[in-house]
Amino acid sequence: MSLRKLGLEDIDLLEANFQSVQGAGEAQWFGFWDTNKLRARVGQDQLIGNADGALAVCLGEQVIGKVDWFTVSSWGRANTSACWEVAIGIFAQYRGQGHGTQAQKMLVDYLFTHYPRHRIQATTAAENAAEQKCLEKLGFTREGVIRQAQWRAGAWHDQLIYSVLRDEWAH
Score class of each variant (00 low, 15 high):
residue 124 T to A: 12
residue 141 T to R: 12
residue 143 E to Y: 02
residue 34 D to A: 09
residue 58 C to V: 15
residue 60 G to C: 12
residue 127 E to W: 13
residue 120 I to P: 07
residue 143 E to V: 03
residue 168 E to R: 09
residue 34 D to R: 11
residue 7 G to K: 13
residue 44 Q to E: 15
residue 97 Q to N: 10
residue 146 I to S: 07
residue 27 A to S: 15
residue 149 A to V: 02
residue 156 W to I: 06
residue 46 Q to T: 11
residue 66 K to F: 14
residue 18 F to T: 02
residue 66 K to V: 10
residue 74 S to G: 15
residue 11 I to C: 01
residue 165 L to I: 14
residue 25 G to L: 04
residue 19 Q to D: 14
residue 148 Q to C: 02
residue 63 V to N: 04
residue 7 G to C: 09
residue 150 Q to T: 13
residue 16 A to H: 13
residue 7 G to E: 15
residue 157 H to I: 09
residue 151 W to L: 04
residue 123 T to C: 12
residue 103 A to K: 15
residue 150 Q to P: 02
residue 127 E to K: 10
residue 3 L to F: 09
residue 4 R to G: 05
residue 48 I to Y: 11
residue 70 F to Q: 04
residue 84 W to F: 11
residue 2 S to H: 14
residue 88 I to Y: 01
residue 13 L to E: 02
residue 164 V to T: 06
residue 24 A to R: 04
residue 95 R to W: 12
residue 78 A to P: 09
residue 68 D to A: 09
residue 170 A to F: 08
residue 77 R to C: 05
residue 28 Q to D: 15
residue 90 I to D: 00
residue 92 A to M: 05
residue 45 D to R: 04
residue 81 S to F: 00
residue 38 L to G: 07
residue 163 S to K: 05
residue 114 H to S: 06
residue 121 Q to A: 11
residue 127 E to M: 09
residue 36 N to L: 10
residue 42 V to P: 07
residue 57 V to H: 07
residue 8 L to S: 07
residue 25 G to T: 02
residue 147 R to M: 07
residue 81 S to E: 00
residue 117 R to D: 08
residue 55 L to I: 06
residue 40 A to K: 09
residue 166 R to C: 05
residue 1 M to Y: 15
residue 73 S to Q: 11
residue 22 Q to L: 13
residue 157 H to Q: 15
residue 9 E to M: 03
residue 100 G to T: 06
residue 48 I to E: 15
residue 115 Y to F: 14
residue 128 N to F: 03
residue 148 Q to W: 09
residue 122 A to F: 11
residue 82 A to Q: 01
residue 40 A to L: 11
residue 89 G to M: 08
residue 44 Q to P: 03
residue 161 I to M: 12
residue 14 L to Q: 00
residue 106 M to S: 08
residue 133 K to N: 05
residue 41 R to K: 13
residue 132 Q to H: 06
residue 83 C to I: 03
residue 123 T to P: 07
residue 27 A to L: 05
residue 47 L to N: 09
residue 168 E to A: 10
residue 102 Q to C: 08
residue 105 K to L: 14
residue 40 A to I: 10
residue 128 N to S: 04
residue 163 S to T: 12
residue 10 D to W: 00
residue 99 H to G: 08
residue 133 K to E: 04
residue 97 Q to H: 13
residue 23 G to L: 06
residue 26 E to Y: 13
residue 169 W to Y: 12
residue 16 A to V: 09
residue 69 W to S: 00
residue 82 A to S: 03
residue 30 F to M: 10
residue 100 G to E: 11
residue 3 L to C: 10
residue 144 G to A: 09
residue 114 H to I: 04
residue 75 W to H: 14
